[in-house]
Amino acid sequence: MTVRFELYSTWGCHLCEQAEQMLQQAGLSGQYQVLDIVDHAHLFEQYRVLIPVLACRHTKATLGWPFDQAQLTAWLQLQLQED
């Protein structure tokens, strides 16, 4: 599968774990990559108090926390239409 999305996260973030569970429930296993913002200075600077954040590689759109499963599903549908 092609990696289409990036989940900006960090170790020990329970909200990030919830967001990843939602991605799996949405059937996106293998289509996203988790990036620890601590390992990327520009991501850390931009998202340190906003994680978890989901980004679409193609459209460059982001979905920031808080979001629920319905909001995630709607956002994903928009991104996949643009892809």
Results as ranks from 00 to 15, higher is better:
Glu17Asp: 08
Arg48Lys: 09
Ala61Phe: 12
Gln69Cys: 02
Thr73Pro: 04
Glu20Cys: 03
Leu80Pro: 02
Thr10Gln: 11
Thr73Lys: 03
Phe5Thr: 08
Gln46Leu: 13
Gln33Gly: 07
Ala41Phe: 13
Gln25Val: 12
Glu17Gly: 03
Cys16Met: 10
Ala74Phe: 05
Gln21Cys: 01
Gln18Gly: 10
Met22Cys: 11
Trp11His: 11
Asp36Gln: 11
Thr59Arg: 00
Leu54Arg: 01
Asp68Arg: 00
Gly27Leu: 02
Asp68Ala: 02
Gln81Leu: 04
Ala70Arg: 06
Tyr47Gln: 04
Tyr32Asn: 06
Val3Gly: 03
Phe67Met: 05
Glu17Met: 11
Gln21Lys: 08
Arg57Pro: 08
Val49Gly: 00
Tyr32Glu: 07
His40Met: 09
Arg4His: 15
Gln31Cys: 09
Leu35Arg: 12
Gly64Pro: 08
Asp68Pro: 00
Ala61Ser: 14
Thr10Pro: 06
Val53Ser: 04
Asp39Lys: 09
Asp39His: 03
Val3Phe: 03
His14Asp: 07
Tyr8Leu: 12
Leu78Lys: 01
Tyr32Met: 04
Leu78Val: 13
Val38Gly: 13
Val49Leu: 09
Leu43Asp: 08
His40Asn: 09
Gly30Asp: 14
Trp75Thr: 06
Gln46Arg: 15
Ala74Glu: 14
Cys13Trp: 04
Gly64Val: 13
Val53Lys: 01
Tyr32Trp: 10
